[in-house]
Design a protein around this nucleic acid. Structure first.
Length: 587
RNA sequence: CGGGGUGUAGCGCAGCCUGGUAGCGCGCAUCGUUCGGGACGAUGAGGUCCCGGGUUCAAAUCCCGGCACCCCGACCA
């Protein structure tokens, strides 16, 4: 491909509104342009990267026996009403009406349509298993698109759906996807992790996410280097550290004993925050209990739930939400007062049950756990006072994993220290069960002639996120260093003097010969100065660069790898073989 | 949705406080010189100053309302 014929608008200056490295470099390198918030034009270079990624995805999906098809993105609302998601999903779904006034939606995912198709076309267990996939647009009205193509409102997704007769079949389909995904991300040249993920509070099905470590990532995972445990922090349990108890906090424990008299009150005028109380009483934050009031929304359960955490720990709201099986939000100051009768700052667990509130304590506070029946300081539920309390003696609470795993805490499997890594979610796999097949009537007859709902799985990959993650993980100050499998071209052939006939002849020959050997070549034949072309080549980041310059008079060209390595002079007649071997060695 | 910020030539920005002539760099066009690390000179094209309303003799500039985009947080099938 001649660069003069390729539309590749590179820019020298950083775009003003691009923060993430991948965003900056993909704009500057002429891969994408922003059209509106979270909506992108993919330019020819970007599209070549996308096509290579999609090709790898197709090869690996086909290899596990999946079949490709294409689903509509404009859906009548009724399939979404059937699954309940028309109501359950809020503003994230684009909704519209057709000319007849019928409710329509733009597809944000395709479980419903695939289940609809399965319901109509799959009749017998003999039709199973099936794995269907597509590479299709998704529309999500994200509240805040960000990070270039990392979080957008319209994007391409490979999504596949498996249909099996039973859990064992789903297990097999799930395992096949793990195989395919491991290969896909490895072939795309990504550093990635497969981690346990939150399957939501709609059932206990298993789910994993594929995560590419990057500072631009929006998720965090807890990883154990010793035993290989890896989970999203939304899910990860961890073993807390248990610092020794401060004398002041221990006093309540000692004087009350584990079964003896109740809590002791201390005066704490105007001391509201954990830090204030700790410093006022001369104890550590880990000697305090944090009392957080949350509102449970959209369930028949009690409206408030009180979360108790050790003072140095942070609540992970999703964990609380999953435990109480409903969305939660922090109660407002007024709601806290209404529910507890106390202002924020002096809230504590003692006596709240008697007011009809549900108390959930984080595992680290469990008296049956490593902390034992130790003393803590907590609010007294009256202004300007705190109590020294013992969990289980002075109040009772349900125990659950509520806090976010922190770096250095113990791995739940082996106890060694956990590492927290920031990651980009590039794919996920999910055991759905019968969540969509039942409402959409996707059933087959089993060998006994009994009607059974299909057991489904759904599996997603974001090709643009693979591209962005690859850039985040592979770049230097000059530009992108594409992994060779997904680079827009394999070789960038830079011809320096475009009016030099000998150079043109050599470049044309190299271009044609390399192409016929199976490598894709971007021949920079533009009438630009050398510095300009070198800068563009490094910005665009193809694995191998060949420079055709004045040395062709001596029968030589230069070549080098984009990722490090020395620049070398090579005889023209040896250049094709040498370029191929450099490309083979590229990562 | 809460907080912060920005909208001026294709891109990056100054001008706004203190109202009156719309400017700089890059890019673009033409010519010349140059051209192995984002060249130099000359000439030139290119503007609803985000939109609407108000104040004023006069608004890019002041006031009111709206919209768009970015960042932090919340949210994220």
């Amino acid at each position: 491909m001649r660069a003069s014929a390729l539309f590749m608008p590179t820019v020298k200056e950083d775009p003003a509104d691009a923060e993430a490295v991948s965003h900056r470099l993909m704009i500057r390198g002429g891969f994408v342009r922003q059209f509106a918030a979270g909506i992108y034009v993919i330019l020819p270079l970007g599209w070549r990267v996308m096509r290579r990624i999609c090709r790898i995805i197709r090869e690996e999906m086909d290899r596990i026996g999946a079949v490709e098809l294409s689903m509509p993105t404009l859906h009548p609302a009724d399939v979404w009403q059937a699954s309940g998601r028309y109501q359950a999903i809020g503003q994230e779904m684009f909704r519209l009406k057709d000319r007849g006034g019928r409710d329509m939606v733009l597809a944000m995912t395709h479980e419903e349509v695939f289940a609809w198709l399965a319901a109509r076309e799959l009749r017998s267990y003999r039709d199973l298993p099936q794995i269907w996939y597509q590479i299709q647009l998704k529309f999500r009205d994200e509240p805040r698109p960000k990070g270039g193509v990392l979080r957008v409102r319209e994007f391409l997704m490979k999504d596949s759906y498996s249909f099996d007769l039973d859990e064992a079949g789903l297990e097999a389909s799930y395992a096949k996807h793990i195989q395919a995904y491991d290969r896909i991300f490895a072939r795309c040249g990504l550093e990635f992790l497969r981690v346990e993920s939150d399957s939501g509070f709609m059932g206990g099905a298993q789910a994993h996410e594929y995560m590419a470590p990057s500072a631009a990532g929006e998720d965090r995972v807890a990883v154990c280097d010793s035993c290989g445990f890896a989970a999203n922090v939304e899910l990860a349990r961890s073993v807390a550290h248990f610092p020794s108890v401060s004398p002041a906090a221990a006093r309540g424990q000692a004087e009350g004993g584990t079964t003896g008299v109740g809590p002791l009150e201390v005066s704490t005028p105007e001391q509201r925050t954990i830090a204030e109380v700790a410093s006022f009483l001369g104890v550590r934050p880990s000697d305090l209990i944090k009392t957080l009031v949350y509102v449970v929304e959209g369930t028949a359960e009690r409206r408030y739930v009180v979360a108790l955490l050790r003072g140095d720990h942070e609540l992970h709201e999703n964990k609380l939400a999953r435990y109480v099986r409903g969305a939660v939000r922090p109660a407002s100051a007024e709601e806290v007062l209404a529910a507890t009768g106390v202002e924020i700052g002096f809230l504590g667990p003692v006596g709240l049950r008697e007011r009809g509130l549900r108390l959930v304590a984080d595992q680290a506070l469990d008296p049956a756990g490593p902390a034992g029946s130790r003393g803590y300081v907590a609010g007294a539920n009256k202004p300007h006072a705190h109590l020294t309390v013992v969990v289980g003696r002075d109040f009772q609470a349900e125990v659950a994993d509520l806090r976010e795993a922190q770096a250095g805490e113990g791995c739940p499997q082996c106890g060694r220290p956990l590492t927290i890594r920031q990651v980009i979610e590039v794919g996920n796999i999910f055991k759905l069960g019968t969540k969509y097949s039942v409402p959409l009537g996707a059933t087959v007859l089993d060998e006994k002639g009994q009607e059974r709902p299909l057991v489904m799985g759904s599996y997603g990959i974001g090709p643009a996120r693979i591209a962005a993650a690859a850039v985040e993980q592979n770049h230097d100050e000059r530009g992108i260093i594409w992994p060779k499998a997904i680079a827009p071209f394999d070789v960038q052939l830079v011809q320096l003097q475009t009016n030099d006939e000998q150079q043109t002849r050599v470049a044309a020959w190299l271009h044609d010969t390399l192409e016929s050997s199976g490598l894709e070549v971007l021949w920079d034949d533009r009438d630009e100065r050398p510095g300009f072309k070198f800068a563009d080549a490094e910005l665009i980041g193809c694995p191998v660069r060949i420079t055709v310059g004045k040395k062709v008079r001596e029968g030589k060209v230069e070549m080098e790898r984009r990722r490090g390595g020395a620049r070398e002079e090579v005889l023209v007649e040896e250049a094709v073989e040498r370029a191929r071997s450099l490309w083979e060695k590229a990562e």
